[in-house]
Write a protein that binds this DNA or RNA. Structure first.
Length: 244
DNA sequence: TCCAATGTTTCGCC
DNA sequence: GGGCGAAACATTGG
């Protein structure tokens, strides 16, 4: 159940197989297994919530969606494997996920400057994209994968609480400094998420997401399904300013 | 026990 | 055919 940072952890865990040949393929995925057998994995990569297994001229794109999971060098008892890749030194197994092939080079398919976890992340580029979207709410903007690839609902809620912006604020009504803060904090928080997740302590750091009371003012959070995307937002109407 | 949820795609209607 | 919203998919913890 992954946002971008969780996919970075998957990439790290898979790294032990980089450069190795796929010696067996199984699973109920509809993709053509024969394109993988005996092929070498060049690199593991990620873009937002997409996990990428890069071969020569072919990339396997794995999206874990809401409920997907994986195991490395073990299996989930009694669960159907969507795709299993075996290497000389172990195996990686994926469950309940979307798997498609991307032909050619990953760079043909992805704008790396949009990925908040990428070295190539470009805040200025995000700002330009937001400028072209008048009427877009902050809550929807942060979930827009073309702009903030990797940001999911948890990161959305935590970023908006941190910067004290109401989720239903319109991005083109945010003061310039606030807009910049929203963009920069999306990356900063995502990297904190990564470290907390790595240490299995993510939840205890949540300040807004699923919370009942605002720690700053002690007033209750309003839970509301906001924006075009109608995703859960936790709002402190006292601390978070609505810009409209 | 039941329900909601770290997400995206597809279908059907206007 | 575009735009929209609902439905589909599917697992697990609270």
């Amino acid at each position: 159940m992954p946002e971008g940072p969780s996919i970075v952890l998957l990439k790290e865990a898979a790294q032990q197989f980089a450069g190795q040949k796929i010696i067996a393929v199984s699973g109920d995925s509809k993709i053509d297994h024969s394109l993988l057998l005996n092929k070498k994995v060049l690199t593991f990569n990620s873009w937002g919530k997409h996990f990428l297994i890069c071969l020569k001229d072919l990339t396997i794109r794995i999206h874990l969606l809401m409920f997907g999971s994986y195991r490395i060098n073990e299996q989930k008892p009694g669960k159907t494997i969507r795709l299993s890749l075996r290497f000389k030194t172990g195996e990686i197994n994926f469950y309940t996920c979307s798997i498609v092939y991307l032909p050619g080079d990953p760079g043909d398919h992805y704008d790396w400057s949009a990925d908040v976890m990428s070295d190539e992340w470009d805040a200025g580029s995000a700002r330009k994209k937001l400028k072209k979207r008048p009427g877009l709410m902050a809550c929807d903007a942060l979930l827009e994968q073309d702009i903030f690839a990797g940001v999911g609902n948890i990161i959305k809620n935590e970023v908006l609480y941190r910067i004290r912006v109401h989720p239903e604020s319109l991005v083109n009504k945010l003061p310039a400094a606030k807009l910049k803060e929203m963009i920069s904090e999306s990356r900063i928080y995502s990297f904190q998420f990564l470290e907390w997740k790595r240490n299995n302590e993510l939840k205890k750091h949540w300040l807004a997401h699923t919370k009942k009371l605002c720690l700053r003012c002690k007033l209750p959070f309003i839970k509301k399904y906001t924006g075009v995307k109608k995703r859960r937002s936790f709002i402190c109407e006292n601390c978070q300013v609505l810009y409209t």
